[in-house]
């Protein structure tokens, strides 16, 4: 009987939290499409958020894209030639870099940097009752705090994914030049012939989904922080775990949609 009770309690809890998340999601969507949400204060926060999320990370991002990109593309090319798949190198590189690696790696990097920061920021604001102060002044916290972060997440992940893919493809040329003695024009046409609209759309849709959850989950987690400082690390920990589960879930879902 105890087991049944516990199971029932857990199921109710699960459905309750799913209902809450869906409700929060709908609320965000409603604000997202409402032009009144885009007041000057919101636009200022949005600009700052894009700067912190996408611009501030660029130097380390470029460095990682060059180092990681050339090594990973090198491995892909090496394996392709080892298995006599030279004719398919273009489509292998495009699928690997544009469809999979660039959005996923960007999502991981932004999750670690901005996801954790936003979770902490909202949790601290919640514990310090700053959110209550904003409500007292009739300032909609969804418009002022959440929407700019979510939109900046979508814009930043999408633009950085494109940047990452471009740098990775560029640095991949270095490997093809030294390893396969391929000239730049051949490499360029190899990629241009392989790339399809589907690849670009995949990158855009995945980046949109990643950008959305990377901001939404830490915000939701931060909001749910209990009213004491010791609850902040717990909130960040839970938020980051949920975020990584969501990021992996999107990646698996996109793989299933693309390949099955």
């Amino acid at each position: 009987m105890y087991l049944v009770e516990k199971l029932g309690e857990k199921t109710i809890e699960l459905f309750h939290s799913i209902f809450e998340i869906v409700q929060f999601l709908l609320l965000i969507f409603l604000h997202l499409v409402n032009p009144k949400s885009y007041n000057p204060a919101m636009r200022m926060v949005l600009t700052k958020q894009i700067y912190f999320t996408a611009i501030g990370i660029i130097p380390i991002f470029i460095l990682m894209a060059i180092i990681f990109g050339s090594v990973v593309i090198g491995v892909v090319i090496y394996l392709s030639t080892a298995y006599s798949l030279e004719s398919e190198i273009g489509s292998i590189i495009i699928t690997f870099v544009v469809d999979e690696f660039a959005p996923f790696f960007t999502a991981l990097l932004i999750s670690l940097r901005s996801g954790a920061a936003i979770n902490t920021e909202i949790a601290v604001m919640s514990v310090n009752k700053e959110l209550n102060t904003l409500k007292e002044y009739k300032i909609d916290i969804i418009d002022y705090l959440f929407l700019p972060r979510i939109i900046s997440g979508i814009i930043s992940v999408t633009s950085l994914s494109f940047l990452f893919a471009l740098i990775m493809l560029g640095s991949g040329y270095l490997f093809t030049f030294f390893y396969m003695d391929m000239d730049f024009n051949t490499y360029k046409y190899l990629l241009l012939n392989a790339i399809e609209l589907r690849d670009i759309l995949t990158l855009i849709f995945k980046s949109f989904a990643f950008g959305f959850v990377i901001m939404l989950i830490p915000i939701y987690s931060g909001l749910k922080t209990q009213n004491h400082y010791t609850a902040i690390p717990v909130s960040v920990l839970n938020g980051m775990v949920r975020l990584f589960v969501a990021v992996f879930f999107i990646e698996v879902l996109s793989l299933i949609i693309q390949f099955f």
Binding site: N39, P40, A41, M44, Y137, D140
Partner: peptide, 17 residues
């Protein structure tokens, strides 16, 4: 301080500042 005017009266940030 500027936030209040920017949100409730759509005042530009520079004016509100």
């Amino acid at each position: 301080i500027a936030l209040i005017k920017a949100v409730h009266e759509n005042m530009s940030i520079s004016e509100a500042n």
